[in-house]
């Protein structure tokens, strides 16, 4: 069974992939067969449909989350012996005492630049979804059924296909600065400024402006997501609806606001929600391009920084909980949207 659990050769790897798919299909088939009876009670059906998901999520996400919440109330300290040195176990690790308190939260909320970090996070979670969705929507509407639609869509989609790490490389060649007199620019944005007779700007020098320039990178990536989903939604608007509106004399902007927007409402909510959560979690861009500048930090980058140091791991748990709380408004908004939809359905 080595080929399945530790494949080495190319053939084994492909074989193990096929086997994995087959196992999955067989297991799911068995489950569905068991609940497929028309007379099966709905709780059994729900268990069959949801069982695997619940197990996966409970083990993979819920349990670690509970542990994280638990840890966020913990602080640990070394046990100090009479010789003023830490006391060691037989395996040479240091004995620690754990106490439960609100110290992690206290240190987060008394952090002098917490307000700025929260502010930056809010900017990200508001600007990224709104702007990316707006751009994706406008673009999708304009190019809809135009001659170059496929090509035009691909252009906006390309950034989606690039990893966050790749994005940081790409944008270096946009934002890079050299303000030595007469030096070559290697960033196109600064070269552009030079061409029109201005001085180059250090885009990534920190502060609010840099946050905006980093948000632009995220918008650049995510507009493709918005465009793809919204474009598909626009195409799902029945021809008759549009025709009827046209007969009523709607055109241009009116058609857009009266017909298009309401028809794709739920797609808009989906896109906004997904992008907002993505923006809340985004740390790669800030980490890779922020030049260790605390003024552009967001909660997710603080979390990663704390998480990677043994001394601040508990602190990072508290930040993860804060992140969790920040997503609640989005959850509530979605639940309310769902309720509304339920009523009209």
């Amino acid at each position: 069974m080595d080929w399945l659990f530790s494949p080495v050769t190319a053939g084994d790897k492909i074989l193990s992939m096929i086997a994995a798919i087959v196992i999955f299909v067989v297991v799911m088939g068995a489950i569905l067969l068991a609940v497929g009876n028309e007379k099966a009670p709905s709780w059994l059906v729900a268990a069959g449909f949801l069982g695997p998901v619940v197990i996966f999520l409970a083990v993979g996400l819920v349990w670690p989350t509970l542990q994280t919440i638990w840890k966020s109330f913990q602080t640990t300290a070394n046990v100090i012996g009479p010789d003023n040195q830490p006391v060691r176990n037989p395996d040479f690790s240091i004995q620690k005492t754990t106490s439960f308190n609100f110290n992690n939260y206290k240190s987060i909320f008394t952090d002098s630049d917490l307000l700025r970090v929260l502010g930056n996070t809010l900017l990200w979670t508001i600007l990224v979804p709104l702007v990316a969705t707006a751009i994706g929507l406008v673009y999708a509407v304009i190019i809809d059924r135009s001659r170059f639609e496929k090509f035009a869509k691909t252009l906006i989609f390309i950034p989606m296909a690039i990893s966050m790490v790749g994005a940081a490389i790409i944008w270096r060649f946009v934002y890079a600065i050299n303000d030595a007199p007469g030096a070559n620019q290697i960033g196109i944005a600064n070269q552009f400024l030079v061409w029109i007779g201005l001085k180059p700007i250090n885009f990534l020098n920190g502060g609010l402006a840099t946050t905006f320039f980093l948000i632009i990178v995220m918008i650049w990536i995510q507009a493709g997501f918005a465009m793809t989903i919204l474009s598909a939604a626009i195409k799902a608007i029945p021809e008759d609806t549009i025709e009827a509106a046209k007969i009523d004399g709607a055109s241009g902007m009116k058609l857009f606001t009266r017909i298009t927007i309401p028809s794709i409402r739920s797609a808009l909510v989906v896109v906004l929600t997904t992008l907002a959560i993505g923006a809340l979690k985004a740390y790669d861009i800030v980490k890779a391009m922020g030049n260790s500048n605390p003024t552009v930090d967001v909660i997710a980058t603080r979390f990663i920084t704390y998480f990677n140091s043994a001394e601040t791991e508990n602190l990072s748990s508290a930040l993860a909980v804060v992140l969790f709380v920040m997503v609640l408004p989005i959850v509530v908004y979605n639940v309310r949207q769902m309720r509304k939809q339920e009523e009209t359905r």
Binding site: P64, L280, A300, F303, I304, A320, F324
Partner: peptide, 18 residues
């Protein structure tokens, strides 16, 4: 709603348990 909210869990906290 619980499944929906799980979207926000930072992957990093799940690495060691998994």
């Amino acid at each position: 709603v619980a499944v929906f909210a799980l979207q926000i869990v930072p992957i990093q906290v799940t690495l060691l348990p998994l």
